Simulated scan of single mutants.
Amino acid sequence: MQFKDITGHQEVKNHLLNSVKTNRVSHAQLFLGPEGSGSLALAVAYAQYVNCENKKDNDSCGECSSCHKYERLIHPDLHFSYPFYPSKETAVAIDVLQEWRTALQKNPYLGLNYWRDQLDAGNKQANIPIKEVHDIIKKLSLKAFEAEYKVLIMWLPEYLDKEGNALLKLIEEPPAKTLFLLVAENQERILNTIISRTQLVKINKIGHDDMKNYLVDKHQIENSTANEIAFIADGNIQEALNLLAYQEHNSSFTTFVEWMRYIVTDRGSEIMKISDENLSKLGRENQKSFLLYAINMIRQIMLIQQGLRSLVFLKEEELNFVEKFSELYQFEQLTEAINLLEKTHYGIERNGNPKILFLDLSLQLVLLFKYQTFPKGTQYI
């Protein structure tokens, strides 16, 4: 994987390139960035550049033996560790290495739920167990096979728990030419003893324009659709890919309008039917994508209410709906609607019962839009 293949983050790329050019490669680095930001892809591209046999000024050559092996993720001195779902057949990460390589090559912006789906893990809890920690220590105690650096890329060290303390001595005093790259999303969940032994590489979410260009260039979608998805995904390419897949197979706008019509007219039987027969059967990722779409639509309504039409990225049909809806409700009601949608999204992420969650959400929205009042008064349908 080369830097040129990764969307955005030019400042981070320059920092990583300069660390190699000036021979200031820290042996333990923490790539900290939100899901879908490309932090894992940057770590792989950095490792490839470090071991490239014919480095260019701004990237690895992509042609040497080392680069070819890195592109296929099969370099003998490149090791990965990641959360997985231990079982009798799967004791350490290498037991699902082929699945990992396939997933990462297909989607370098992958999130944990995407990785879970590749393993068909059901409701199992992911972690990095103590056997995996011992396997890491064993692998890194060996000499490098052919590269200058042995590299371990650990994705989501948040899942190490206290077992990670067994790695402290190795991280603090590693064998010569050993490079630890930890790729994390939530600093608060990482052991402080590990954070204190690493150099931080902060990675921000991807900007709107970079996201839009990625969707247009890589997925050949229309500019207006790319604008809309980029706005909803808010810097998370994994979420953008989820939304793109959802829109390819579903009419989110039609479903949203039908659902809202039942809610604002308080049609109980139809609400129960659409919650039970439509929304609850979408599948978890599609349910999350639908809720994000709904959140975006409410936000667009709020933008129009505030006179910020230039920030609204919608097709004509959606724009007409948003304009009409913006005249009916107060800003405070819309804000509370977003809070309810976000709570339901969190419940879906936590494997809550979708029938109960969507029915409860619908009924709370009925109360909010039809009966709840605010100090300035409210206009109702």
Rank of each mutant, 00 (worst) to 15 (best):
Y70E: 02
E53P: 01
A41T: 02
G33W: 07
C64H: 05
E89V: 00
N113Q: 13
F80E: 06
W100A: 05
L142V: 05
Q105L: 15
S19T: 12
V96P: 12
N113I: 07
G111D: 15
L40S: 07
K55C: 07
N18S: 11
K139C: 05
L119Y: 05
P34R: 08
S26E: 14
E146F: 04
V44L: 10
P108G: 06
T22H: 08
Y114Q: 09
K55R: 15
F80I: 09
G36H: 04
L112Y: 08
F145E: 12
R24H: 13
N54S: 11
Y114T: 06
K69C: 08
H75F: 11
S37K: 09
K56N: 12
F80S: 06
N51L: 10
H79P: 13
Y85C: 03
Y46L: 12
K138R: 15
P108T: 06
H68G: 04
N23W: 12
L104V: 15
E89G: 00
K138T: 12
N54A: 09
L97H: 12
V133D: 05
P83I: 08
A28F: 06
C52F: 10
N23P: 00
L140Q: 08
S87P: 02
Y114D: 11
A43N: 01
P76T: 07
I128C: 02
V44C: 04
C64Y: 01
R101I: 12
K69Y: 11
N107E: 03
R24K: 15
Y46T: 07
R116Y: 06
C67Q: 05
Q10S: 09
E11F: 09
N51C: 10
N123D: 15
I94N: 10
Y114G: 00
K13D: 05
A41M: 03
F145P: 00
I137T: 08
N23R: 14
S65Q: 08
P108V: 09
K139R: 15
H9I: 01
V92P: 08
L17V: 11
Y46H: 08
E63Q: 15
V133P: 00
K138W: 12
V133M: 09
V12M: 02
K88Y: 07
Q48A: 07
S66R: 00
H79I: 11
S39W: 04
A41Q: 02
V133C: 11
I128H: 10
H27L: 08
D135W: 12
K56I: 07
Q29N: 14
A103V: 07
S66N: 14
Q118N: 06
N18M: 13
D95C: 10
L16Q: 04
L104N: 00
L40A: 12
L119E: 13
A47M: 08
